[in-house]
Amino acid sequence: MINLIWLTLIAVGIIVAAINGQPEIITDSVLQAANLGVKYSFDLIGLMTFWLGIMRLGEVAGLVDILARLIRPFTRFLFPSVPQDHPAMGAILLNLSANILGLGNAATPFGLKAMQELQSINKGSNEASDAMITFLALNTSCITLVPATIIGVRVAAGSANPTEIVGTTIFATSVGMILAVTFDRIFRYFAKKRG
């Protein structure tokens, strides 16, 4: 899918430029945009380096575990089919906590572990269980406290107030998360009804 989108953008662009009789626009765009890509990654280095240093401190200090304890009451309600003391629950909590803190690298191993444990409850079926779907709905729509990369891009672009989008981001992602859980319940209700 992404392959097709990428190719379409380039191919359609070149065709339109050709129809307009301005092929030089394409040459200029390619050169400038390629340089810009490198410039932006370099401008990101400072902030990414600092932020990942701070987040590693949070990780080593056990912030993920503390957050996991805080969100436990919610997951009890969200995963009625998973026993509270099952290892799946622990992995789910750790994955979501790491996601909230923006620790992508720490989140993935917990996430894969959670899927394994959920699959053991699922008795090795090749069909997704209710709990898996809820877990992935939360995982993909979950709040990130500080969207560090995009703040870095804004800094690089010379924003007067690079962090002003933190609040709007948390708002938008909260709406997405609440609706993800709601849609999940609605789909599940109709799936049950159909048998």
Binding site: W6, G13, V16, A17, V30, A33
Partner: peptide, 27 residues
């Protein structure tokens, strides 16, 4: 952090080129 920023280069170049060709051509 350094490694992650550097790893972004190919993604940024690929998309920035495609989008700017698409935009600047008038498409």
């Amino acid at each position: 952090g350094f490694k992650i920023a550097i790893k972004l280069i190919p993604y940024l170049v690929a998309m920035l080129v495609a989008i700017s060709v698409f935009r600047n051509s008038g498409a």
